[in-house]
Design a protein around this nucleic acid. Structure first.
Length: 914
RNA sequence: AGGCCCGUAGCUCAGUUGGUUAGAGCGCUACGUUGACAUCGUAGAGGUCAGCGGUUCGAAUCCGCUCGGGCCUACCA
């Protein structure tokens, strides 16, 4: 349909085809467009806007970090969705930001301090934090510049940092509320202690590793029996040094071997402490000797058992990983591993060591520092998340929150059903200091700030708790703290709950689950409606990238080499659900070639339509009066457009990419552009070809824009008339949808046959070894099974078929004698070419083909005579089988004729013997 | 110990609720620079869908077992 805007009233754009460089060079425009979009404020979101909201929160990268390919993948997908929704008319916000990443960042700076010959302790807290902030400022720009390289369409005016005042306020508010609800408590419990980091860590920060260790069998005398020859029990342990803190010995209540020990006690070797025997079902009768020494303060199991049986605990290992005074003068001050050796030696000397066995077992290691975790008892802050966990479980079960891929749901449920209190305090300096203040006499007041605490305490002689919160405590609030919570800001009202979270499965529990829990708790709603968990990006061989292996790919390098669009397309096309992503630079090069294809297709279209006044982008096109190729490409385009939205909605980025790739390269470039050539050259003019070409390009570019933003903008800006779609930028142009009026099953059916015919003719040419310039006549005849309309269609398109096949003439009718022929899509094609006889190779190939055909026919016949099949298979399948069989028989006849054989219908047995 | 995922062409992977002849990209082979593109074009070779058994008229697809690979969770001292 023509709009009010006529073809000639719009001034030509400054950029024209003539200016399109022959060389496709993404570097020449990518950075420029990113700057231009920023200047234009294209990605800035206004509230209120009158548009439906769409929001994605970036998983905040470490503020001092560098983006790796995993970030590139996730950012690409987030940007893709944001751009797509923005084009669909949503008020699309992709909110960027960074995380202070407590331990990771502090370690980085501490390591740096070591090179300066100082340390955080030496600097003191205030000076150290000054250094941390300076460090943060220095690196802060990195993340943004790397996201810019990728074409990220974030609203930077809303950027957040987890230690910002606003977010810090949200953190304090959340803490105070949870404390007042009794969900946050302070207490002395068993925690995972990392001696070199000098802090407690959560269960999630402990990595169990299988290590080769030793199992020490130690004899403990039973109290009251003769110290020399009396009864001794033997206990197996992997950690003999902890025996110094033993306060009991446990056996299984049904273990006949030890039931007589009830009420008695053992005597701890080296120390002489009295260890009561207790019965507990946690003990495994089969392991070791069936007896367990109890060290309540240095083993999580023993801690629980100690509580159950009222046994005290003794701390023999200190926060520095060294033995305490409680361990006795022989051991105090020794490193825990030195102490182990010394304890074993003493036991051996004194005859208590029965035997030592090799033993593989699982030991918890600190994820950050790599050392074995020391379970010990210390005073920490804990958050009881059991109630929130139940809410999170319900949210997934009742569909308020969708996890993709669904295979993660079981894992999600298992973890949440078995959740334990979350240790949220860290003995670090970089982070949110815990909003708790202590009076001189040790009373504790939790408050939003010191003034509030003073009011509560009735004194301002207060000291704030020196510890900081686990980094994940602040990131758990990210989806709403970034929008202004606890205040009911317009942003919060508009964008919460957010729509999608895209992140890696590796932080499903660290982050995703905690956001869901706190979101439900504080806002009463899920923080996002669905989560798309990506796989891990690996190298081309499928090996996990690591610095030590040297197989790390840096997204910035990849962008520099192939362009951001190619990197984005590659990552999006590789993201299939539940799979890791093997990233191969060759594949990126392949998608760069796709960019080149787009570039050149546009260059061709623009250069060949310069003289055509109607070659302009139209908002709409009426297919009435168009020739078959035009009707066909519009129909194909509409169909592809219809396929994209559902795939983006379900995170099938891979499928969306593939469809667009094949439409553009296959349908548009390989066929439509070829078909347009005789029309554009004036050889065989057709109506409105230029307008269709421009319109199809316009919509194709718009469809591709969320995946390849730079290239599509650069090319689109050159299309005459693009301004009628959007005056400024493709970023804000509407995302194309299916056009019912363009759909044309007849044109598609006809063109489908035409394509198959042309392809087969080219195949025959190659088989016959015809030189490219050789002339020949092509005979086409619709076979018996074919649709009459197809025959007419091919007649009408004879000149185009001749052009595509490079045939002299296309003749309708039965093939003459002695021609090479084949049958495809119900059409017999025959090449009239002067040729004495078939070459031996060709004869062999034909024979082989006939043999295969005979086998296929036999199989089809068998199936079609199977009564079960005829009775139970749906009608269309049976019909399809019959039609197929009929066509195979016709093809058999056709190929037989080529062979010059007398083979005829149904006479398959005589074939294939030449 | 439990749970999850994977095994399809030389490589990396798609393959909708089971349904005609299992696809793509890269790589490979042959030919080709016709005025968009050699970052290209045309044609082609290449697969007992890990193995075994079952359900079914029909299985890459559903079920069971086996083998191989990966991941997550877990209090065997």
């Amino acid at each position: 349909m023509e709009t009010a805007v006529s073809g000639t009233s719009i001034p030509e754009t400054e950029k024209t085809a003539a200016e399109m460089d022959k060389r496709f060079d993404p570097q020449s425009y990518e950075g420029a467009w990113q700057r231009r979009w920023a200047e234009m404020g294209v990605f800035r979101v206004e509230v209120p806007s009158g548009k439906p909201p769409f929001c994605i929160m970036i998983p905040p990268p470490n503020v001092t970090g560098k983006l790796h390919v995993g970030h590139a993948l996730q950012s690409t997908l987030q940007d893709l969705l944001t751009r797509w929704r923005r084009m669909q008319g949503y008020n699309a916000l992709w909110l960027p930001g960074t995380d202070h990443a407590g331990i990771a960042t502090q370690l980085m700076v501490e390591r740096h301090l070591v090179t300066e010959g100082t340390s955080r302790r030496e600097l003191g807290r205030a000076a150290f934090l000054e250094r941390m902030w300076a460090w943060k400022e220095q690196y802060h720009g990195n993340i943004r510049s790397q996201l810019d390289l990728l074409g990220a369409s974030c609203d930077w005016s809303r950027e957040r940092f987890t230690l910002d005042e606003g977010l810090s306020r949200a953190v304090r508010e959340a803490f105070v509320r949870l404390y007042n609800e009794g969900l946050i408590t302070r207490g002395e419990y068993m925690v995972n202690w990392s001696p070199t980091l000098g802090t407690a860590v959560s269960d999630l920060e402990v990595e169990t590793k299988t290590v080769q260790g030793k199992l020490y069998h130690i004899a403990y005398p039973v109290e009251g029996s003769d110290p020399e020859n009396g009864e001794r029990i033997v206990i197996a342990t992997t950690r003999p040094e902890t025996m110094l803190g033993d306060t009991g010995v446990a056996y299984h209540p049904e273990d006949e071997r030890y039931r007589h020990l009830a009420g008695k006690a053992a005597v701890l070797p080296l120390v002489g402490r009295r260890l009561p025997f207790v019965a507990d079902t946690v003990v495994d009768k089969e392991f070791g000797t069936g007896l367990v020494k109890l060290t309540p303060f240095h083993d999580p199991n023993d801690f629980e058992m100690g509580r159950r049986h009222g046994l005290p605990g003794i701390s023999v290992i200190g926060l520095d990983g060294r033995m305490t005074a409680e361990a006795g003068p022989d051991f105090a001050g020794l490193d825990r591993f030195e102490a182990r050796a010394k304890v074993v030696e003493r036991l051996r000397e004194q005859g208590f060591l029965v035997k030592v066995e090799e033993h593989t077992h699982n030991v918890g290691h600190s994820q950050r520092s790599g050392e074995p975790i020391e379970p010990l008892v210390s005073t920490q802050w804990f958050c009881d998340v059991s109630g929130m966990a139940r809410q999170a479980l319900d949210a997934v079960r009742d569909g308020r929150l969708v996890l993709k891929p669904e295979s993660w749901v079981k894992t999600w449920e298992h973890w949440l059903e078995n959740i334990k209190p979350w240790c949220i305090s860290r003995q670090l300096w970089w982070g949110h200091q815990i909003p708790a203040w202590y009076t001189e006499d040790g009373r504790c007041f939790v408050a939003r700030d010191a003034a509030e605490a003073a009011a509560l305490a009735g004194t301002d002689r207060l000291t704030q708790d020196p510890d900081v919160l686990d980094t994940w405590f602040s990131s758990a609030l990210w989806p709403f703290s970034t929008l202004g919570w606890p205040e009911e800001t317009p942003d919060l009202r508009t964008f919460y709950p957010t729509d999608v979270l895209i992140t890696g499965f590796d932080i499903l529990f660290f982050w995703v689950a905690r956001m869901v829990m706190t979101g439900l708790h504080f806002t009463g709603d899920v923080p996002f409606r669905s989560v798309h968990l990506t796989g891990l990006v690996r190298d081309a061989e499928g090996v996990k990238m690591s610095k030590t292996k040297g197989n790390v790919l840096d997204p910035a390098d990849l962008v520099a080499e192939y362009g951001a669009d190619a990197v984005r397309f590659t990552l999006a096309s590789l993201d299939s659900p539940g799979r890791d992503i093997p990233l191969n630079p060759e594949q990126i090069a392949g998608y760069r070639a796709f960019g080149n294809k787009i570039w050149n297709a546009a260059r061709f279209a623009l250069s060949r339509t310069q003289e055509l006044p109607d070659a302009r982008v139209r908002p709409e096109i009426d297919p009435e009066g168009l020739a078959a190729p035009e009707r066909w490409i519009l129909s194909r385009l509409s169909r592809v457009a219809a396929e994209i939205d559902p795939r983006f909605e379900t995170f099938r980025f891979d499928e969306a990419c593939n469809r667009l790739y094949h439409f553009f390269w296959g349908d548009l470039c390989d066929w439509y552009i070829e078909l347009s050539k005789p029309a554009l050259s004036g050889e065989a003019p057709r109506p409105r070809v230029g307008e269709v070409l421009m319109t199809v390009l316009d919509r194709s570019l718009r469809l591709l824009h969320p995946i390849m933003p730079f290239l599509t903008e650069e090319v689109w800006q050159r299309l005459p008339g693009h301004e009628v779609i959007h005056p400024e930028t493709i970023c804000l142009a509407p995302y194309p949808r299916a056009e019912a009026a363009w759909e044309d099953p007849e044109a598609e059916a006809g063109m489908d046959v035409l394509i198959q015919v042309v392809t087969r003719v080219r195949g025959l040419r190659a088989e016959l070894g015809l030189p490219p310039k050789a002339k020949f006549d092509l005979h086409l005849s619709a076979a018996a099974a074919a649709d009459a309309a197809i025959g007419r269609f091919l007649d009408e398109q004879a000149p185009l078929i001749a052009f595509l096949c490079r045939a002299e003439h296309v003749v309708s009718g039965a093939a003459p004698e002695g021609t090479r022929r084949d049958l495809v899509a119900g059409v017999e094609v025959a090449l009239a070419v002067e040729r004495p006889e078939l070459s031996p190779e060709e004869r062999q190939r034909l024979a082989k083909e006939l043999e295969k055909l005979a086998a296929d026919i036999a199989r089809a016949e068998e199936r079609l005579s199977n009564e079960g099949f005829l009775a139970k298979a749906p009608a269309h399948v049976v019909e399809g089988g019959r039609a197929k069989l009929a066509e195979m028989r016709e093809r058999q006849a056709s190929l037989g004729a080529s062979l010059g054989d007398s083979a005829s219908l149904g006479d398959s047995a005589s074939l294939g013997q030449s």
